[in-house]
C-alpha cells in the first residue's frame, strides 16, 4: 500500500523499471531507439534513465544493439531454438494440476465469454484515454 503513489508517479524500484523497459522492447517487435522505448514505458521516465537501463541490459547480454545515426537501435535477445517456449507452453497447457499453482493472468476463454468480452471492451473500454470513458459506465465509481 505504501508503494502505490510512488508506482503511479513512475518512481518504482530500479528493478521494476528495468523490467518494464525490457517488456517495452519485446512489445515493439522490431529494433527501436531509446526514445521509442521511453514512449512505451508507463509513467514517463526520463530519457537518460531509459538510456542507462538499455545500456545496462546490453551489458548483461539481454539486449542487442546496432548503430543507427547518432544513437543505437535496440532489440531483445531472442531464444533462437524456442525450446524453452515450447517446454513452458506444454507445461501450461497439458500440465493439468502440475501448473495449477501458477497464478495466470488469464485462463481459457469459452466462446460465449469471448463475445461478452468483446462487447464489454467495445462499450466500456474503448480507448487508451480510458479514464474519461469509464466515468460514463453506470455504477462505476468516479
Amino acid at each position: 500500500m505504501t508503494r502505490q503513489e510512488g508506482a503511479t508517479a513512475g518512481r518504482r524500484a530500479p528493478g521494476e523499471l528495468e523490467s518494464e523497459v525490457l517488456a517495452a522492447l519485446w512489445a515493439a517487435g522490431e529494433p527501436v531507439g531509446a526514445g521509442a522505448v521511453r514512449e512505451q514505458v508507463a509513467g514517463d521516465p526520463a530519457y537518460t534513465t531509459v538510456l542507462t537501463i538499455l545500456t545496462r541490459l546490453y551489458d548483461k547480454g539481454l539486449v542487442t544493439r546496432k548503430r543507427a545515426g547518432r544513437g543505437y537501435l535496440y532489440s531483445p535477445v531472442h531464444d533462437e531454438a524456442g525450446h524453452v517456449a515450447a517446454g513452458m507452453r506444454d507445461l501450461l497447457e497439458h500440465g493439468g494440476d502440475r501448473a495449477a499453482v501458477l497464478a495466470r493472468f488469464v485462463s481459457s476463454l469459452p466462446d460465449e465469454d469471448e463475445k461478452l468480452l468483446e462487447e464489454l471492451l467495445r462499450d466500456h473500454l474503448v480507448d487508451p484515454g480510458i479514464s474519461e470513458v469509464a466515468t460514463r459506465v453506470p455504477g462505476t465509481r468516479d
Partner: peptide, 12 residues
C-alpha cells in the same frame, strides 16, 4: 531465459 528485475520474458 532473459530476466531482468523480476520479469522473465519467453519468446513465444
Amino acid at each position: 531465459l532473459p530476466t531482468t528485475g523480476d520479469v522473465t520474458v519467453v519468446d513465444d
